[in-house]
Nucleic acid binder design. Structure first.
Lengths: 149, 149
DNA sequence: TATTGTTATACTCTATAACTATA
DNA sequence: TATAGTTATAGAGTATAACAATA
């Protein structure tokens, strides 16, 4: 748990992040929706998961996750396997094709962002590099509701 | 125009930003869609604008902007005025109520983000504060296609 | 009864194409 | 003809409510 740091304008940060992400998304040939991308990312990093758990992790309703998984499965990006131990449950896992698409999506986003960052003066780029750990900690906090892993 | 800075992982940044913005949006009682918020923000900062110009600025199609403006006008958040000089054209401007809603939205987003940032250690908070200028420069670059104002 | 997931229905936001009005 | 904007139509993605299957 940290202490408040003076001079951190949260409203400005929120606004800046909003615009940046909107722009980067629009500047990238759309291959995956936001939730599709982060869901595949979660499956890639954390391994197979149940629908309900995925829904909670991604912050969408469970029916929405059911339909998202159906769409992803139709594209061959994930596999649905019934849990032999609990036949109500389904286990969703990312496929090789899913990983390929995820990597492709990341490359496209990276290219878009790189083009932007490359235009910044070196000190701004350095500031971003220094803030990367903090950004990742922030998203980790957002995902898990607590600090760190 | 800057130079490349070693150790800046653009893919990681893009991914972190994605998750953060998704989470912050979902953790905020929705009062405005992404595009509604950034459009009102543009009108607030840059003054009245035509539909087509707005569409370009926000990166959506012109019909989409027509409908967005219609929705915003229905809520009393913007005004549509016909340009007396060119009767084909419409001028869209933000209303007092629009500014109020925009401020309300910013407050909500800020509160959500603050709750997250407050959980970070002080050095991470400091890193974010240092990166704020860079983030703003980045969004400015994204919006205008060039550096600075 | 509680839990896991699906189906039914409806709403928001967006796009492309066709159209109207004005220049 | 070209430009500014609207209307028509369609599709993705989401939510809540009702349902089916299993524990």
């Amino acid at each position: 748990m940290g202490t408040a740091v003076a001079g951190l304008d949260h409203a400005a940060i929120a606004s800046a992040l909003d615009r940046l992400v909107l722009w980067a998304r629009r500047g990238t040939p759309v291959r995956l929706s936001s939730t599709s991308a982060t869901t595949l990312d979660t499956l890639d990093q954390d391994g197979p998961s149940r629908i309900t758990l995925l829904a909670h992790r991604e912050g969408v309703s469970q029916p929405a996750m059911t339909m998202l998984v159906t769409r992803l499965a139709d594209q061959g990006l994930v596999d649905r396997v019934h849990d032999p131990a609990d036949r109500r449950a389904a286990l969703v896992s990312i496929t090789a094709e899913g990983r390929r698409r995820l990597a492709e999506h990341r490359r496209a986003r990276t290219t878009t962002l790189q083009a932007l960052v490359a235009q910044l003066p070196a000190d701004h780029q350095a500031a971003l590099a220094s803030a990367l750990d903090a950004l990742n900690a922030l998203t980790e906090t957002a995902l898990t509701g607590r600090e760190g892993h």
